[in-house]
Amino acid sequence: MECWKCGKKAVMHRKYEGKSWCGDHFVEQFESLAKETISKEGLFQSNEKVCVALSGGMDSTALLLFLDNLFENWRDAELIALTVDEGIEGYRDESIEIAKELCKDLDIELHIASFDDHFGKTLDEIMEDKDHGCTYCGVLRRWLLNKKSREIGADKLATAHNMDDELQSIFMNYLKGDMKRMVRLGAKPAVLDREKFVPRVKPFRESPEREIALYAKLKGLELHQTECPYVEDSLRFDVRDFLNDMESKRPSTKFTALRAFDKLLPKIKDGFSGDETSVRECKECDEITSGEVCKACQLRKKI
């Protein structure tokens, strides 16, 4: 199979567009799509300090490499990285080494924030007498990413959420009837409070997970393949499998679904975003929350 642009051997055939791509042209097109997302959504401004949430997995290492390359030509933009060490032996320690190595190679300042330092326990210790590791991990990790990125002076927190992640969240919120959360999705989610909340941006939101992996591989990045030991059967995984089955049977399903959501979002935003003035500071940790006490503090009491 040959690249439709140059006739070289193809590394990817996209059924949804009916074209095959060689490595060089695939990389060029992949980067051009991410740049388009950045420009279309206005994800970055000049003079900003952008912090990449770097787990060491394939998506976030690919994002850091891509942004490092992009920012080379941007004056006054600064790129730093933040890794959360949840304390998962045999899993996170491996990916942290990948993150450290990449930041060293790219000469990017890396900050590491650990559960142990901030919550007094590693996730392994928290889970000794509990189930549902993803709940604890997700809530505490998001809390820490926001707090730490703000403390290190980041103007934006760039996450490597991809098209698959975004669609899973859309479908999950729809299935759970959680419209408030649904309208918070998008490449540049709503800014609640600039003082406390570091705005999050998703430059890879329009790229399928499979294509990010290919990009990472073609760029010579090490793919961290170990599965988290706390992965559990969840609604997210059911939705993920459903979407992959649909895409396999009916190519372009994912694209159509994301485009449809993007058309719908501005129309439903006003109706469901709720009263943003209800956002307040958690009375225990001062981070923002919509209730009296934030979810992270509620969970902290249980650990």
Partner: peptide, 23 residues
């Protein structure tokens, strides 16, 4: 790395690399 449309000619080894997030 090969595209899914690549054909096999025999005595070859295919390595399938998972790309879905596992957590």
């Amino acid at each position: 790395i090969v595209s899914n449309k690549e054909t096999v000619d025999g005595d070859e080894c295919l390595h399938l690399i998972n790309v879905v997030s596992g957590g």
